[in-house]
Amino acid sequence: DHIPWITAVLPTVIICVMVFCLILWKW
């Protein structure tokens, strides 16, 4: 059976995008 890697990667991607947007917003 396949491991849904997207389910494991998606939260990390969302957190990175939120942090990236927060850094851009504070500049």
Rank of each mutant, 00 (worst) to 15 (best):
K26S: 07
V9F: 01
H2E: 09
I15G: 05
I3W: 06
L10T: 13
H2D: 05
I3K: 12
W25Q: 15
M18S: 00
L24V: 09
L24H: 08
D1W: 03
C21D: 14
D1K: 07
I14W: 01
I14R: 09
W27G: 12
I15N: 13
I15A: 08
P11A: 00
W25E: 13
T12M: 13
T7D: 03
W25V: 11
F20T: 13
A8F: 10
L10I: 03
D1V: 02
W5T: 03
W25I: 07
C21R: 08
W5K: 14
A8H: 13
V19I: 08
V13L: 07
K26L: 04
W5N: 09
W27T: 03
L10C: 04
A8T: 08
A8V: 15
P11Q: 03
I15M: 10
V9R: 11
W27C: 03
L22H: 14
V19E: 01
V19R: 11
V19A: 11
I23D: 13
I3T: 04
F20N: 14
C21S: 10
P4Q: 09
C16K: 09
H2M: 15
A8G: 04
P4M: 15
L10R: 03
I6R: 04
W25C: 01
V17G: 05
W25N: 02
L22S: 13
P11F: 00
P11N: 08
L24I: 06
C16V: 10
C21T: 10
I6D: 11
D1Q: 12
D1M: 07
P11E: 10
W5C: 08
C21N: 15
I14Q: 13
L22F: 08
T7G: 04
T12D: 15
D1C: 08
C16R: 11
V13S: 09
W27D: 15
V19Q: 14
I3N: 02
W27N: 12
V19F: 05
W27R: 08
I14C: 02
F20D: 15
I14E: 08
C21A: 06
W25H: 04
M18H: 07
I23H: 10
L24R: 10
W27H: 05
C21G: 14
F20R: 02
I14F: 10
C21M: 05
I6F: 10
I23Q: 12
P11G: 00
T7K: 05
V13A: 09
I6M: 11
M18V: 02
I23E: 10
T12H: 12
A8I: 13
C21L: 02
L22G: 10
V13K: 13
I23P: 12
T12G: 01
D1S: 11
M18N: 13
V9K: 14
V19N: 13
A8L: 03
